[in-house]
Amino acid sequence: MELIQFYIVAAITISSAVSVIMQGRVMYSILSLIVTLLSVAWIYAILNASFLAVVQVILYAGAIVVLFVFAVMMLRYEEIEPQRMRTGLIGCLGLLVALFFIFELILSSATGPFVEEATLSADFGSIKSVGAILYTQYLVPLELASILLLVAVVGAALFSKRG
């Protein structure tokens, strides 16, 4: 049962990811990206990371993709540069290198030596357990991350004003 579920989600993820890079129009790419991100959230849910799955949906599929959509719509890019950009020599070389790279990655994933699989507690990956570790052990990085976000917001605002 799990296997079938895995194969379904894997197929959706991979095909939508390929679609992201194969689409000619940017808007279609973004739509494919949404599918990919949602399926990754599904994978998180399978993998006992329910909190992460929720965050993935809210943060990625919600916020980040909306940013992309906004950007594309504000630029009205397709009207100015409508023709599809050809990938050229570097794209061919890139295809070669990247395929070899993917091969190596998958090889290493398949053969890696693993530790014994741990038995998981019932609330593994729940908001409570992740929150506990986040606000104790990782408190300082968390605060730093919030500062980073603030800086990014201010920076983005500054850039768009100065333009």
């Binding site: 570097i90 070389l93 290198v97 790279f101 190596e104 290493s108």
Partner: peptide
Amino acid sequence: GAVRWYALFMVLGITVMLGYVF
């Protein structure tokens, strides 16, 4: 000054390193 060439070299380097490890 072309970003894609730099990216290509970067990935190439990582690929070679991984290959060496294998």
